[in-house]
């Protein structure tokens, strides 16, 4: 098991930037008969900070659930490299997910465990490391998110922002290839949100990870995103993709323009 862990680490250095890491092909998402989004086609490259954006209720978090194996598509495929993610067995999917870290919207720390146990669990399960080594890694991960010394605290004993950071420490436990963030700034004050953005940038550069973020926080989108997809709730499909800065300056779509300018484009249009 230890060996597997080592090789995964090594594989990271062999990655080629600007080659697709995740490819979403003709994806349709639905709850029963109700289609949330249809015909989604985009790819997320290695080392991207990829933003999934759109208005409330457009299906951003549902798309994330399709990418991380929590909900199967009604139609279409998701590829991790050249592996068709929803065509393989649950065990194989689970093996792919071990290379991914996920920060859930509310942190999703296991409430009956201390922070050290939360971060240590994936290491105990998959790293094959000795308890002493696990303790050291846990301590390092907590220090990376600014929570050094909080090992023995339970999630209920720390603030919401700290829970998110601890969730991030857990997501980073196995030095993932891909980090998924579901609304990372939600419920955080502007300064903490900004610090989290800086942390995400640093993680991308130091871990060499691909980052996928579901968010509608414009400040974060422009500060860290270098690629994106825009989901529209009305037409129930994606209506734009690309670098958010480029989208802001080049898009002709009024909905995208309105979203990226916080509605100012529409307000100016109305004034004229």
């Amino acid at each position: 098991m230890h060996w597997v862990y080592e090789t995964e680490m090594n594989r990271q250095s062999e990655k080629t930037i600007n080659t697709p890491h995740i490819i979403v092909s003709d994806l349709t998402m639905a709850y029963g008969d109700f289609v949330i989004q249809r015909d989604l086609n985009f790819s997320i490259n290695h080392n991207d900070i990829f933003i999934i954006m759109g208005g409330s209720g457009c299906g951003k978090s549902t798309l994330l659930r399709h990418l991380i194996g929590l909900k199967s598509p009604a139609k279409g495929q998701v590829f991790y490299g050249d592996i068709n993610f929803w065509d393989i067995s649950p065990d194989e999917r689970s093996r792919i997910m071990r290379k991914c870290g996920i920060l859930y919207q509310k942190g999703a720390l296991w409430s009956s465990m201390t922070l050290a146990e939360n971060i240590g669990l994936p290491l105990e399960e998959y790293s094959g490391l000795a308890p002493r080594d696990i303790e050291e890694i846990v301590s390092l991960k907590l220090a990376l998110v600014g929570l050094a010394g909080y090992e023995e605290f339970y999630p209920s004993e720390i603030s919401g922002g700290m829970q998110k950071r601890a969730g991030l420490a857990r997501a980073m436990a196995l030095d993932p290839d891909i980090l998924f963030f579901d609304e990372p700034s939600a419920g955080l004050d502007p300064v903490s949100a900004r610090r989290l953005d800086d942390l995400i940038l640093e993680l991308r550069d130091s871990l060499g990870a691909t980052i996928v973020i579901v968010t509608h926080e414009l400040a974060s989108i422009f500060a860290i995103g270098n690629n994106s997809v825009f989901l529209d709730a009305e037409t129930r499909t994606m209506i734009a993709q690309g670098d958010p800065h480029r989208l802001l300056s080049e898009t002709d779509d009024p909905k995208v323009k309105e979203f990226l300018t916080r509605g100012e484009a529409a307000a100016e249009g109305a004034k004229k």
């Binding site: 659930r65 991380i68 194996g69 929590l70 689970s94 093996r95 997910m97 071990r98 991914c100 996920i102 859930y104 919207q105 509310k106 999703a108 720390l109 296991w110 409430s111 669990l121 994936p122 399960e125 998959y126 857990r170």
Partner: peptide, 17 residues
């Protein structure tokens, strides 16, 4: 049920546990 609400069960599943 509360673990379901807090996405704790999702966190276990995606971790392959």
């Amino acid at each position: 049920g509360t673990m379901q609400v807090n996405e704790e069960i999702d966190a276990l599943s995606t971790m392959g546990i």
